[in-house]
């Protein structure tokens, strides 16, 4: 690993790219779904739903990114994203089914 960056990560360069993608994309979809779930779960007016989605999304997205970065092994990070996303999707569909 070259010393092209300061706070060196314990992973090689290509894996860093992979991790960035995992965190950005996986975090985005996770936060998006969860904020949709929150919107479904609440019974607010249409205009306020949007505000709720914004609030929840922008609270969750940075947290998700940081969380996905803080996991040590790549495989675990990948699995975590996939499982978390799957769970979130499922709960969204479950809520849809109820309503």
């Amino acid at each position: 690993m070259s010393n092209w960056m300061h706070g060196r990560l314990p992973w090689p360069r290509l894996l860093v790219v992979a991790r960035v993608v995992i965190a950005l994309v996986g975090g985005y979809s996770l936060a998006a779904i969860l904020s949709m779930v929150a919107a479904k779960y609440s019974n607010l007016e249409v205009r306020e739903l949007r505000s709720l989605i914004y609030l929840v999304f922008f609270l969750l997205y940075p947290i998700a990114i940081i969380w996905l970065f803080s996991i040590n092994s790549h495989r675990k990070a990948l699995l975590t994203t996939l499982i978390a996303n799957a769970c979130a999707w499922m709960s969204l569909y479950a809520l849809d089914g109820l309503s």
Binding site: A32, R47, R50, Y54, F58
Partner: peptide, 23 residues
């Protein structure tokens, strides 16, 4: 930073089409 994020939120959160745009 957080309020700035919320103010321009519609640029990143463009989905959720079943909900009226606005805000």
């Amino acid at each position: 930073t957080f309020s700035g994020l919320i103010l321009l939120a519609s640029t990143l959160v463009f989905w959720g089409g079943d909900i009226n745009r606005g805000g």
